[in-house]
Design a binder for these strands. Structure first.
Lengths: 217, 217
DNA sequence: ACCTGAACACCGTTCAAGT
DNA sequence: ACCTGAACACCGTTCAAGT
């Protein structure tokens, strides 16, 4: 629920050498963007930050701690992106669903290494409380818009939690497959997000034009 | 389409020291199961296989090649598990959907490190042709059962590819979230698979009991 | 036809010592 | 209150030499 930022847990300080903690995080994000993975070495980060290879250990107990901090920032950015897409779409919760889905998948494609770190990483301290809180707040954002869609009458009245589980799983799966290059156009078409979205919407939206196709045996 | 096995690409040979290639693969699978990740070192595998740390290089050009071989085996096992679940369920394609979904998610939960290696791994040679072929054949298995469900009349007549994209994404996302411990019961309930499945089925199955709830605004 | 041992250039992490 | 340099115990990978 809380809004974690880069300096979470560490009061703002300016030392003679600057804010090394933040510099390390920003350098790591840069390297991840360049190399498309999070297999960077702590020593490389230190080198690029212009400090000795031992300096990072004054700010992070180990490499896992830095990775965890990065993942937390990622969840934060993702949630902010979703909220942005929702408010851009106006008041209608139904109309916000596709833009939010697009924002989600785009985030993954724009930050593949970060997204994989957030979810698929062995290096991350997965038991970190703050990390799960940040991850969960993404889920809450999805659930919230579905809730309002139901109240609106635009969505079928089913347990919101069930619909949210389906939506989050779908988005996560789509994003991961997309990042990994497994959504081959000749297999899933040119717009897999739209295809998947249409399919799921038939299960979620209130039935209007249903029943037209009565090829039920 | 082809059926890749452990010895793919390497003719069966028995040397005085045994089939080291296969031993390395099996040892790696063991270690992954033990440590719940694929961060093992090649040297550890060699140690446990009882050979020098340089020996693996006679069978794999580098560590990425071993990881790729493991991922390929994983895709193969997954596909076999799906086919098994389908044939266990009998002739009705509609009835096979839930068992297949369960088989998919179970595979991930039973082999978390392997599953993450198959999809989320930086170490894997993702451009390997055989690897993508194995991955794609999983998709084909999903598509096949949906195709038959449509012919049967049990499923809505929509582009099969769209439905398959939605189904695969959903399963993949659900599996990944489950492995990562993000499907917290207090958030998604005790049976997230069933919840997600119900939701998507409403979008995929032929409309029978639809339209009852007419709270359309 | 396969395996070993020494060697190279790296890591992550620690710790006494510096400023 | 923070940073450095040397040191330790590892890696992945190569290669001449062994059997």
């Amino acid at each position: 629920m809380e809004n974690f930022t880069v300096t979470e847990g560490t009061p703002e300080r300016r030392y003679h050498h600057g804010d090394l903690r933040r510099t390390l995080i920003e350098t790591a994000l840069e390297v991840m963007r360049e190399e498309q993975n999070w297999q960077f070495t702590l020593r490389e980060i230190a080198r690029r930050a212009g400090v000795s290879h031992a300096a990072p250990y004054k700010h992070f107990p180990d490499k896992a701690a830095l990775l965890t901090a990065l993942a937390m920032i990622g969840f934060d950015q993702l949630r902010i992106g979703l909220i942005q897409a929702r408010s851009d779409a106006g008041e209608d919760p139904r109309a916000a669903l596709l833009p939010m889905a697009r924002a989600y998948v785009d985030f993954g494609n724009d930050n593949p290494a970060l997204y994989r770190l957030m979810f698929g990483a062995e290096g991350v301290n997965r038991s970190d409380v703050h990390l799960s809180e940040n991850a969960i707040s993404v889920f809450d954002t999805v659930m919230d818009v579905l809730q309002r869609g139901q109240l609106d009458g635009a969505l079928r009245r089913r347990p919101v939690r069930d619909q949210a589980t389906a939506c989050w799983s779908l988005l996560h799966g789509l994003t991961m497959l997309s990042i990994d290059g497994l959504l081959l156009p000749e297999k899933v078409g040119l717009e897999p997000l739209d295809a998947a979205f249409r399919t799921v919407m038939e299960g979620i939206a209130s039935s209007d034009e249903n029943g037209k196709m009565s090829d039920v045996r």
